[in-house]
């Protein structure tokens, strides 16, 4: 389907042609050969979507322990909700900056979080979908390599292959089958924790009100 188009055949034939059945070299820099042929400076450690190539060790660890992290998160979300009076006293708006700073660091280390502000880690097997070069939030694209690595970044395990593995270990893993809405870009760099807590507190209060009036 036409996500395919061999019209680059000529270009490739002109450059160094790949060996039989060869895959592009695993350098973290897709089609490095083609780019180098243009004379451009192409350091091997830079990914095509212009961010430094990181190691994936911790991120992959998180996926392997998705069941544990799911449990931890449930505890944590509960505790955060208990702190609701505190957040309300400080004011959610004022708590935003410090909480965001903590959230960015904690989730940054664990998941390579990109602070989209609408975290769906529990629906994606604890594999952050914003690390997918196409930022897909609904499953793997059609380009995943036979070895399970990403189409765009040949040495990165496909975020969604990992997500599927992670979700299979989680109690609520089937959340991966739900269709996700598009990212609201205006929520970038805001705290997902506070948003979830505020929403949960509101739902809880509504429930209480409904119970009271009945």
């Amino acid at each position: 389907m036409s996500e395919t188009d061999p019209s680059r055949r000529d270009a490739a034939a002109a450059g160094p042609s790949p060996g039989p059945g060869s895959r592009p070299r695993a350098t973290g820099n897709a089609a490095a050969g083609a780019k180098a042929a243009t004379g451009a400076y192409t350091p091997a450690a830079v990914s095509p979507n212009r961010r430094g190539q990181r190691r994936y060790t911790i991120r992959l660890w998180a996926v392997r322990h998705s069941r544990l992290l799911e449990w931890v998160y449930h505890r944590f979300a509960h505790a955060f909700l208990l702190l609701h009076p505190l957040w309300k006293a400080i004011g959610y708006a004022r708590a935003e900056a410090p909480v965001t700073a903590v959230e960015r660091r904690v989730k940054g280390v664990l998941f390579d979080c990109r602070m989209c502000g609408q975290c769906i880690l529990s629906s994606t097997g604890m594999s952050c979908p914003m690390n997918c070069p196409k930022q897909l939030r609904n499953g793997p694209c059609g380009g995943v390599r036979a070895n399970g690595n990403c189409e765009v970044e040949p040495d990165m395990p496909c975020v969604w292959v990992k997500a599927w593995e992670g979700s299979r270990q989680m109690a609520g893993g089937d959340a991966i089958l739900a269709v996700q809405k598009p990212v609201n870009q205006s929520l970038r760099e805001t705290s997902s924790w506070l948003r979830v807590t505020a929403a949960a507190a509101m739902a809880r209060d509504d429930e209480k009100d409904a119970g009271g009036t009945r």
């Binding site: 680059r8 270009a11 897709a30 196409k134 609904n138 598009p182």
Partner: peptide, 27 residues
């Protein structure tokens, strides 16, 4: 469609948009 990554084509320097994905596009 989601679409191939820009690295696959003749303009690897382009900005990949991917604002929606194929699923949210369908919806």
């Amino acid at each position: 469609l989601t679409g191939d990554g820009v690295q696959a084509g003749d303009q690897p320097g382009a900005k990949p948009v991917f604002d929606l994905d194929c699923m949210s596009l369908l919806e």
